[in-house]
């Protein structure tokens, strides 16, 4: 992601104090614990300039759910509002802020694109990543029939209900295998971890790759 953005002429700051957005605790009902992490995030990213996030899920946490955490805390809410207007999921930053779709990338493979749920339904990102992929040299995009279906990760859901989560991944992978693609592209690493975990276990002829890596390929 850094390579892509620098090529576009952006100067990148990586605040080394950054850790996590707090979503795992929030989604598990531990809002107090999540608030602590969120406050740390707000401190770390104080300032101005866009915050580009290589994850639909983390972006949605900051832009949608920080407001749930701090609904009774007007002081923090002001900071949340300021931050959430600066948070951009990576592909959205490219298509809507930079307004570029051809990054000169080359990736001579047949790929399929997985719509991660938070990006698709909370952030309404669907066309952008496909537009970016369509300009990659040598790349063929083959849509799967279940592109919008969940991969089954869901954070702690994946370990609390491992066989349900595993079953969902299986359904997803069956659909992916039918496309004949060699790579699964997504904008969420957690979905890719879930899918890669099953791919590795079953030794399937598939690889997972983040959109940023595809766009950085020459």
């Amino acid at each position: 992601m850094a390579d892509v953005l620098e090529r576009l002429g952006y100067q990148i700051d990586f605040p080394e104090a950054q850790t996590c957005c707090g979503q795992p605790a929030f989604n598990s009902g531990f809002w107090e614990e999540a608030r602590g992490v969120a406050r740390h995030f707000l401190d770390t990213f104080e300032g101005d300039g866009p915050i580009v996030v290589p994850s639909g899920s983390c972006s949605a946490m900051c832009s949608h759910h920080y407001a749930d955490l701090f609904q009774d805390d007007p002081a923090q809410m002001a900071r949340v509002k300021a931050i959430s207007s600066r948070v951009y999921e990576f592909s959205r930053f490219l298509t809507e802020v930079v307004q570029v779709d051809d990054l000169g990338a080359s990736f001579p493979h047949t790929v399929t694109y997985h719509d991660s749920c938070h990006a698709l339904r909370e952030l309404k990102i669907k066309a952008g990543p496909r537009q970016l992929l369509s300009k990659v040299r040598g790349l063929t995009l083959k849509e799967m029939d279940a592109a919008e279906e969940c991969c089954g990760f869901g954070g702690t859901f994946s370990v609390k209900f491992p066989n349900v989560s595993g079953g969902m991944a299986q359904t997803k992978l069956d659909s992916i295998l039918r496309t004949g693609a060699s790579h699964i592209v997504s904008i969420d690493s957690s979905c890719l971890m879930q899918l890669q975990g099953v791919i590795s276990r079953q030794e399937l002829p598939l690889k997972t790759i983040h959109l940023a890596e595809v766009l950085a390929s020459r």
């Binding site: 989604n27 009902g29 749930d68 909370e122 089954g152 869901g154 859901f157 209900f161 969902m168």
Partner: peptide, 29 residues
């Protein structure tokens, strides 16, 4: 907790119930 919070439910709900949001609040409860 038996949900990946994928949001497919609220996307199709004819009366637009935000089911994942209610799940999140229930989890906190």
């Amino acid at each position: 907790f038996a949900s990946s919070l994928c949001g497919a439910c609220s996307e199709v709900c004819p009366v637009k119930i935000d089911i994942p949001q209610v799940l999140l609040e229930l989890r906190a409860d």
